[in-house]
Design a protein around this nucleic acid. Sequence first.
DNA 1: GGCAAAAGATGTTCAAGAACATCTTTAGAA
DNA 2: TTCTAAAGATGTTCTTGAACATCTTTTGCC
Lengths: 210, 210
Amino acid sequence: MPYSLEHKQETRKRIVQSARRLFNRNGFAEVTIGDIMGAAGLTHGGFYKHFNAKEDVYQEAVLEFICAERPEPWQMRHIDPAAKGPALARMIVEAYLSTDHFDDRDGSCPMIALPSDVARGNESVREGFRRVLEMMVGAFEENFPPAERTKRDRALALVSMVVGGMVLARAVDDKALADDLRDSARRQVYETTGWDRIDTDDAAPLRKSG
Amino acid sequence: MPYSLEHKQETRKRIVQSARRLFNRNGFAEVTIGDIMGAAGLTHGGFYKHFNAKEDVYQEAVLEFICAERPEPWQMRHIDPAAKGPALARMIVEAYLSTDHFDDRDGSCPMIALPSDVARGNESVREGFRRVLEMMVGAFEENFPPAERTKRDRALALVSMVVGGMVLARAVDDKALADDLRDSARRQVYETTGWDRIDTDDAAPLRKSG
DNA sequence: GGCAAAAGATGTTCAAGAACATCTTTAGAA
DNA sequence: TTCTAAAGATGTTCTTGAACATCTTTTGCC
């Protein structure tokens, strides 16, 4: 039993990470196993020591976003890991709709980079996608005051708003329109939640942008 | 000059239509020229009498949605072509978030079926995508009462909401969650616009569903 | 009726890539 | 040290598909 278990796990993680970034950038169909392995510093043949088929890395690549130990730079610039409640919810909205996120195709959330790809994927990827979505729903859900519509109902709508705004921004050929889409989504979220009146100054982002 | 001009135009239209449906279902990368031509009742070779490359049919396939002379069944079931103003806006929301639309992968709006694919596409497709988006913005824009935020701003947010809800619904593996996403998006739109209080009874959809 | 020009069909080329097969290297165990 | 089981590299197979090349068919025109 050469190559320690940790070594194999490390390698496997590198493969998943490189798969995630390449899928984000080029889509599942346009990425080859050689691309993935090359970006992980390996050669194509070794892939099958870790996975049986290309599809088998798809779900893990999607989940890597929420399982990774370190958040992406665009997240770190807007989200204080110590934040809680509405302050955290606000930071998540800011991060998602930020210019940083817009520009980071490789490191973006799979809900932004891959929704229509995943919709055509197998049960497994779509399960992974759902788990990413439910994580975001969970972050929003508990930060609404009681009202007629349930908290979950409103949280789902917010996720649709934030994801929809960014997905459309990425798909149009007009930078100004893309900015407008992100801005209008952000304003709409704040109009319905009031989260923009939450103080986040003492939990300041590392760098302001977007 | 054999084959009348109309004949060629008809054939070309059939190719674009079949491309649109196949792209919607399988994504640009997963569709072959043979598939497109076969579905149009032709053979692969003839493709290049109409287009120089596969990419050249992409924008037209996206635009076909708004240029087609006949709307899709899922649209006809919810939209009265004679309707105007908020009544029309409401019908468009209903159509977009309907079960009919959810189920019709082939005939769906490209903003639902292809957003992440188009985001990776060339300038040309993304221009087509923008024109589809702007058509929907235009249908919403004029139906808001004056307020602090501009009409366009609110229209953009609504499009993000409606598209986002359906895109996410398509991508998850859980039918109940998919339904919840569509329902919550619809409720959120009505909460912010009041369009659900608009009467559309005399402009009734052909058939109730979804 | 015959001609021609373009549509469309058939055939070919060439490259890419998934899956697998077989080497080579690695490092833990005896 | 040597042996070995698994990781990873290298090499192979076979299919697919975009692009193009060349037939065949169609139909307006003389």
